[in-house]
Nucleic acid binder design. Structure first.
Lengths: 205, 205
DNA sequence: GGCGCTATCATACGAACGTTTGAAGGAGGT
DNA sequence: ACCTCCTTCAAACGTTCGTATGATAGCGCC
């Protein structure tokens, strides 16, 4: 169970935590190397530059999110069930890895194109949701509408509510760190998604 | 129609644009004063510090969002109609002021408590949505559930989709700068919110 | 005319930034 | 033993940061 904690790993861990808290520009290489307990020059030596270390952190965090979401999308059950599984998976991975939401938030706020690897992952996830919606429409369990746009509505809820957890806690007094509260929140979102997607004959005209 | 453009106003305008693009730490006072066409010392003189200028920018941007949302919430129509009005208002204000989404994104990513004025505004907006949902439940037009949690589902869609417009454009190839595309997107979200909130007797048990 | 207040200016300050340097360690192969 | 390669180290590099300083100009008012 003992971690030898190589210099590279220590740097990635420290960098993920600090980049998540203070963003790229708000985090100095001195702060990272100090928290990692390594020499100041270690970032340049192992990663070439601060920017490259940042990319490495992004890629490793994205991979964890990707695994959870794509597994849920490929799981068993009806399309609607699997969509709800993706919603739960998003909440789950963000609850387990509290650094990821803020890290992603910082990255999305930067005015530069997404790194190609992240762009592709995002495209794949939205595409998977849209495909599931399309399947549900084909078998008659999901109402009509553009699957891609509906996928945005579905994905936006777990994403925003997880990424904005801190302002939501301050502004709505909903504390997602409390497991019971988060459970009710997740089920509320799942119910909303289910109702928002299901066919409701009486409202069609 | 001529703008005298006082030093303070020029600074606020330049700062809003640059803070939105590069965040607080990524924007230097030299970049701001240069873009504003004023002396380097002007920020210290007129605002006391870079941090105070940032707060001033946040407050002015938040006020614009607040006006649009609260007006829509207080408008005429059924609770459900007014909720949809809030959704449209959020999309509208962010489309008109492209700086605001990124500015908010950067602020939410910072790990520090929200400025009190913003916290109160956020609380007021979520509360207004929750109140509308409660009214709809009382008159039987909205299904059961915790109004506060359902308000999060409603608000998260226009917020996330507007704030993450750039990654969505890159990852889902949906360009919200195109008015026709944005129109279809807004109506898709409104329909989703409507279906997600409405009572659907056949799904209750 | 001279005074006082506000605003703008060029310049300077010390601190912190990301990166570079060159020397020192330390394990593995011959 | 010696050489080699990878890694770590303390120190220094030049640049940029936010803010402070003191001089200068414009303008209303006694």
């Amino acid at each position: 169970m003992y971690k030898p904690a190589s210099t590279s790993e220590s740097l990635i861990d420290a960098a993920r935590s600090l980049f998540a808290q203070h963003g790229y520009d708000g985090t100095s290489v001195r702060a990272i190397t100090e928290q990692a307990g390594v020499n100041l020059g270690a970032i340049t030596y192992h990663f070439g530059s601060k920017e490259s270390l940042y990319e490495a952190v992004l890629v490793s965090a994205n991979a964890a999110v990707d695994r959870g979401v794509m597994a849920a999308a490929a799981g068993p059950g009806s399309p609607l069930d699997r969509i709800c599984g993706v919603v739960r998976a998003l909440f789950g991975v963000f609850a387990e890895q509290p650094d990821y939401p803020q890290l992603i938030m910082h990255e999305l706020a930067r005015s530069r194109p997404l790194p190609e690897e992240l762009r592709q992952a995002l495209e794949r996830r939205i595409g998977a949701l849209a495909t599931l919606i399309g399947e549900g429409q084909a078998d008659g369990s999901i109402r009509g509408g553009d699957p891609l746009l509906m996928a945005l509505s579905v994905g936006s809820q777990p994403l925003w509510i997880s990424l904005a957890a801190r302002p939501i806690r301050e502004g709505a007094r909903i504390d997602q760190d409390d497991p019971e509260t988060r459970g009710r929140l997740v089920e509320s979102v799942v119910a909303f998604v289910r109702e928002g997607l299901a066919v409701h004959p009486e409202t069609e005209e």
